[in-house]
């Protein structure tokens, strides 16, 4: 008979004597059989890795006075980015230097082809503007720079934020920065790039063609801001792909219908009759959309974007 069972039965010798009368069919042979079979009921054992993982998970509970019993280990594990000491990193220095620190990594992430493409697009737009013969009917109430600025900005934002909601975004979120810092770095990088490029183009035009630089700058600056903010808002709400296609569609619609859209035609230059009213409308819409984006980012601030939560970010 199994030694363990024999020992137990010895402990229960009194019970054996007391219970021997009732149902006396249990023979020692039955217990021998029981002793043979009982060890068969083996149970899996956790590995030392499992134990170590459990320890890692539980030990922080000893220090955290705010974790209550109901929460237990179901409480959200803080992201790596959240436990990093960000005081000495992102929060020091002036606003400009902090923004610069956010932008620099994005500069390295973007492909050189992106910069080459942007430069080419702005360069071609400028050459078309300088050309004595305006092709594609640009001689109307718009010009290549005003047309290109919003299109490039929306495509640039979509390209720079292409990882948003993908596993790559998860990886990027493991770095010590919040989703809004991540987004700010990318958007600032794109906007800075195009603002500089189009400002230079405007400078060249003003110097070469003698055009009034301020109205011309307003002509491309407002659609650039409007399209960028709308792309951003749509991206936060519906995802990168939807935002890109919607905004490209919107740009095409503006291009096709042109002046027929009245004050809602944002791609007009100074020769457009409703230039001022369209720019005012564009500026107001930009402010409203910017407010929405800020609200959205503040609301989502600190949300752990885990694989399961990515869905809530609508990508």
């Amino acid at each position: 008979m199994d030694e363990k069972l024999r020992k137990i039965l010895n402990e229960l010798a009194d019970e054996d004597r007391e219970g021997s009368d009732d149902e006396g069919s249990t023979t020692s042979q039955s217990f021998i059989r029981l002793g043979e079979l009982m060890p068969r009921f083996t149970a899996p054992e956790p590995t030392s890795l499992h134990t170590t993982a459990l320890i890692d998970k539980l030990l922080p509970l000893l220090d955290n006075k705010h974790v209550d019993v109901e929460q237990g280990v179901n409480a959200r594990t803080p992201r790596f980015a959240e436990v990093m000491d960000r005081e000495g990193r992102g929060h020091s220095g002036t606003t400009v230097s902090r923004l610069f620190r956010l932008m620099m990594p994005q500069l390295l992430i973007l492909s050189p082809w992106f910069w080459v493409g942007s430069l080419l697009a702005v360069g071609i737009s400028l050459m078309l503007m300088l050309s004595p013969q305006q092709p594609f009917g640009f001689a109307g109430s718009t010009n290549p720079i005003v047309l290109m600025a919003p299109l490039l900005s929306l495509l640039g934002i979509s390209y720079s934020c292409r990882s948003y909601g993908t596993p790559m975004f998860e990886l990027e979120m493991s770095f010590p920065l919040t989703p809004s810092q991540w987004l700010t770095g990318k958007i600032a990088m794109i906007l800075c790039c195009y603002l500089i490029l189009f400002a230079l183009a405007s400078g060249v035009l003003a110097w070469n063609e003698g055009i009034a630089i301020i109205p011309f700058t307003i002509s491309w600056l407002i659609p650039l801001c409007l399209y960028s903010l709308l792309t951003l808002a749509l991206m936060l709400r519906f995802g990168t792909l939807t935002a890109t296609f919607t905004m490209v569609g919107f740009w095409l619609m503006q291009f096709i219908f042109g002046e027929g859209m009245g004050a809602f035609y944002f791609l007009g230059d100074t020769s457009f009759e409703q230039w001022l009213s369209s720019k005012v409308v564009g500026a107001i819409v930009s402010v409203v959309v910017a407010a929405y984006v800020i609200f959205r980012l503040r609301r989502d601030q600190g949300i752990a974007v885990s694989a399961t939560q990515t869905e809530s970010w609508r990508i």
Binding site: L5, E11, L12, E15, G19, E23, T26, F31, R33, L34
Partner: peptide
Amino acid sequence: VKSKLYQALRKMARILEEKE
């Protein structure tokens, strides 16, 4: 506990014997 353990073991032994 002792009583329940003994009864349980007996019952198990009987069930297994019957199956055998």
